[in-house]
Simulated assay, not measured.
Amino acid sequence: MAALFKNLVRNKVMLFMVLPGAIWFFFFSYLPLIGTVVAFKQYRFNREGFWASIVTSKWVGWDNFKFLFNGSDAYIITRNTLLYNIAFIVVGLVLSVAMAVLLSELVGKTLAKIYQTGMFLPYFLSWVIVGYFAFSFLSMDRGMVNQILGWFGVERVQWYSDPKYWPYILIFVNLWKAIGYNSVIYLASILGIDRSLYEAAMIDGASKRQQIFNITLPLLSPIIIIMTLLAVGRIFYADFGLFYQVPRDSGTLYSVTNVIDTYVYRGLKTTGEIGMSTAAGLYQSVVGFILVMISNFIVRRMDKDSALF
């Protein structure tokens, strides 16, 4: 106990630095864990408050989870959530790393900053605004895409009624919004690489392509693995705004746009069962935790230094 106290005193400056973050995590991440019991109850709010409502609500066990797995849409929402996230992870990783490498190779740093800022700006736009942007391009009557098709004599497309186009549209919109943010993370890692390695490679006659594949990418692999592991942990989560706002909640597109988050939201609007939405969130968190642990274990067996923990 004395050794622990001495260690706390010795590191008091560092502990005070992390104190605000620790307080935030306690109140917004750890304290709400008590509320996960709602997933196993038929939650009914009364005037005595939230905690009293939890105590008085009826215990229903696993019934709330049946809402996710017994419905006719269970396969569709699970398939869509998984496949979209796999596409986001794989394609997003490749494009983000490629964009970071290209930005790092630009000779004019001012030009690189302009490109970097332009790519980063979409990340700060809400999905509501992005949804209206998409509508301005895809509207049946006044959409820019249909107007261009009309100039070439091509029949206009009813984008919000035809599901076959939307997997590509959603992947494109997600990449357009997120690639700038992800590329900045990789670009920061590239700028931290010792420049003497590139100078030595140039003296040995290595081309720019050889420098990228033999220096940049191998040294980027730890941050690539960490980012991928974190993304795998959220593979059962879907960006609600992307799948709800961009397709404008069109019922004819549900076969390709309905994911776990939108399904739970619509179920909550219809039934008002808070326990069902809590059960869905708990299910997503548990599955994400298991996937991160398995992925990290595999990475740790292959390369201990590249593991997340």
Rank of each mutant, 00 (worst) to 15 (best):
F124W: 08
L125W: 06
L125F: 10
L125S: 14
V128M: 09
V130D: 07
V130T: 13
G131A: 09
Y132V: 15
Y132L: 15
Y132Q: 13
F133Y: 12
F133M: 15
A134F: 07
A134V: 15
S136F: 12
S136P: 06
F137D: 03
F137S: 10
L138C: 14
M140D: 14
R142L: 09
G143F: 04
M144W: 12
Q147C: 00
Q147G: 08
I148Y: 08
I148S: 12
I148L: 14
W151G: 00
W151P: 00
F152Q: 10
F152K: 07
F152N: 07
F152Y: 12
G153R: 02
V154S: 13
E155W: 01
R156L: 02
Q158G: 11
Y160F: 12
S161Y: 07
S161I: 03
S161N: 14
K164P: 00
W166D: 08
W166R: 03
I169F: 02
F172A: 13
N174P: 00
L175H: 07
W176D: 03
A178L: 11
Y181Q: 13
Y181C: 10
N182W: 08
N182L: 07
S183Y: 02
L187P: 09
L187A: 05
A188F: 06
S189Q: 07
I190W: 04
I190F: 05
L191Q: 14
L191F: 08
L191M: 12
L191I: 00
D194Q: 06
S196P: 05
S196D: 06
L197F: 03
L197A: 05
Y198G: 07
E199Q: 03
A200Q: 05
A201K: 03
M202V: 08
I203K: 00
I203M: 06
D204C: 05
G205I: 03
K208G: 14
Q210M: 11
N214W: 11
I215R: 01
T216K: 01
L217V: 10
P218G: 09
P218F: 04
P218H: 06
L219M: 04
L219P: 06
L219T: 07
L220R: 09
S221T: 14
